[in-house]
Design a protein around this nucleic acid. Structure first.
Lengths: 120, 120
DNA sequence: TGGAGTTCAGTACGTTCA
DNA sequence: TGAACGTACTGAACTCCA
């Protein structure tokens, strides 16, 4: 723990305090959980407005459709082993592969195929 | 070399597959991480029962207090800048699970659900 | 090379809201 | 009251370092 530096690390979706990279985007715990739940069901969410709802910490719960859209815009995606064979590199990351990124804890580890969920 | 014998290497805390010595005891990754997190905060964990909960692979998550106690019984400790410098062998504790009085006070929100089984 | 530390996907569960 | 939300926790995989 390199205490001392308080870098912003804001959630790319709602601007809340990010806790790290989740599903290839820097997000908070709330958006992490939201994306995980929502993208699994993937039911047709539609915005009752023009799809231009504000997504911030206070309003992120109001429109799930716009929130999910912003998650996807931020580059979030799930690595499902079945559908996509191309793990398509993280476009949304600023530069995760720099050596300086290590100081930010920016090490990325692809699990290749979904050999991760063995149990639990 | 050629340790021809297949050494079991079971976790001294929960009996899971140990990955090596962590904090001076042979433990699994789970107990390693648990001890590292828990001993840092060191807030008063208390067992809601008599302090005699079973700590094994399946049930180790049920009672953090007893798990931490068993970690300490196994000889786990963090090398802080404390006073004692004596090595203290790790194989020293014969009594694994006595209902020892723990000098820990405080509250703990225990997930009192018996239906908390590990589905795997 | 092994142990310590970090990251993050996933789980559990209390809280909030419609 | 049920579903969605969000926090805390778990553990596997990883990197760093002596």
């Amino acid at each position: 723990m390199a205490s001392g530096d308080d870098e912003p690390r804001n959630c790319m979706v709602c601007g809340d305090r990010a806790t790290g990279y989740h599903f290839h985007a820097l997000t908070c715990e709330g958006c992490k959980g939201f994306f995980r739940r929502t993208v699994s069901k993937s039911t047709g969410l539609t915005c009752p407005f023009a799809g231009s709802c504000k997504v911030n910490k206070a309003q992120r719960r109001h429109c799930p459709a716009c929130r999910l859209q912003k998650c996807l815009d931020a580059g979030m995606r799930k690595e499902t082993s079945s559908s996509s064979v191309h793990p398509l590199p993280a476009l949304a990351h600023p530069s995760p592969c720099n050596a300086s990124a290590r100081a930010l804890g920016g090490h990325q580890h692809f699990h290749g195929t979904a050999s991760h969920q063995v149990h639990q």
